[in-house]
Amino acid sequence: MIKNISNLGDAALYCDFGNEVNKEINSKVIRYFKSIQKQNIDGINNLTPSYNKLIISFDLRKKNFQDIKKLIENLDIINEDKIKSNKIKIPVCCDENFCLDINRLEEKLKITRDKIYEKFFGKEFFCYMTGFIAGMPFLGDLDNELRAKRLETPRVKVPKGSVGLTEQFANIYTFESPGGWNIIGNTPIIIFDSSKENNPNLVNPGDEVIFEQITRDQYNNYNE
């Protein structure tokens, strides 16, 4: 299933599953990721699944590229139906103070904000990967009509909880951070909680997410 394994520097394996970004390829990446994670192999430090690549970094004091490559080539991969995925509902408020880039999107995409919300809310998204900043989920795929480029000049500070769109993906800023995604709203729920060491991320690769629109009052009174 892996098209090619090469080395990324002297302490990581670069597993290439293809160049396209789609659910089918990403599901393979996630299956490998979960299978390796389950084995708890001594010497493997980190696994980073992304759209179509999996990077396995290891402790060069204990293992080298050839050792890990052999392990991965001979690994039993769990079946797709054994992968547990969660369905998560995420409330989003699109109040004027939160939808920072809605005017820009209306202009760039040449559709109204009502149309944007109609195509965004209630639709099932798939989590391809999490990362860049802690817990940030990359969710696809957006309707063709909602695909826009990043801001020409990224914001220095995007508020925590902001929900943004870029190309075929939606994501959520888990804490205040610089960023260039088109912000359409804000969620009151905590997406990344570092005090929950066993499960700090609300959304994990392979999970399904549905966004639900809430009013400003519901946002203000939101209790988890």
């Binding site: 980073t48 992304s50 690549k53 860049f132």
Partner: peptide, 28 residues
Amino acid sequence: KSEGLIKGVIQVPADGNPIIMLSDHGTI
């Protein structure tokens, strides 16, 4: 297409100036 990083990776963005990832780097 965004993918994983490790420390020591040298990325070259559009401006042609290299950036080396260090210990607190973004993960992708």
